[in-house]
Design a protein around this nucleic acid. Structure first.
Lengths: 106, 106
DNA sequence: ACAACATTTCAATAATTGTTGAATAATCAT
DNA sequence: ATGATTATTCAACAATTATTGAAATGTTGT
């Protein structure tokens, strides 16, 4: 996972609405939900949900599959695992640091 | 960590510039860097850096301390650990799900 | 073929975020 | 005190993102 791939993921999680969508899809993994059910459960207009889903699709954090006249969305859990690994490595404990001889913060 | 606290953290990581700032500060943890050094290393105007640092401060992901005429910024690594725990719990494997009898994706 | 349905795309607008230069505040050295 | 230094805040503007209703696309059932 490179930073230029990670930033869009954070961007796609940076709205409360999208974070809610993603958490909902994780709760319903691995089956996912169709758009109408998401809209109903989160009580947001279909057209606005569609906008947010597009952002999530673009970052890769959710995936989509047409199913008759429904569109089914699922969380991409493996990508989330990569993001967690990225954060652990780059933004937390795993990164190399200046050799000052001091102890690390974790 | 609650969702309403997590969203601002993702928002503060959602710009490439801020993600760079945070990663830099992690590399220089636990000492951190003064604003001028950040600006120099990342080659962004001081006034713009100041704007991004304010966002990071607001989410709690960085902390600030005045040091003479310098302002020193440090990464809040413990908060990042909480975020990683939040993602693991809410957005990945730890969350409760509908009982469908199917196996979990992780 | 037709009507009902699920969802998206489009266009318009509102709201927020990002960027910059100039002005300001605080500190340090002389 | 004065001038140089560090960094912020302010104001203006540019750019992006969010929200909504109406129209369009494709699907299903009759």
């Amino acid at each position: 996972m490179k930073t230029e791939n990670a930033a869009p993921v954070f961007e796609s999680l940076s709205s409360g609405a999208r974070l809610d969508v993603f958490r909902l899809l994780v709760r319903y993994a691995p089956d996912g939900l169709v758009a109408g059910d998401i809209a109903k459960k989160l009580d947001i207009p279909a057209t606005n949900l569609s906008f947010h889903l597009k952002t999530l699709l673009h970052s890769g954090l959710v995936e989509m599959e047409k199913e008759g006249r429904f569109w089914r969305y699922r969380a991409n859990v493996p990508l989330m695992l990569e993001i967690i690994a990225y954060l652990t490595d780059q933004c937390c404990c795993g990164s190399s640091r200046k050799k000052t001889g001091k102890t690390r913060s974790c």
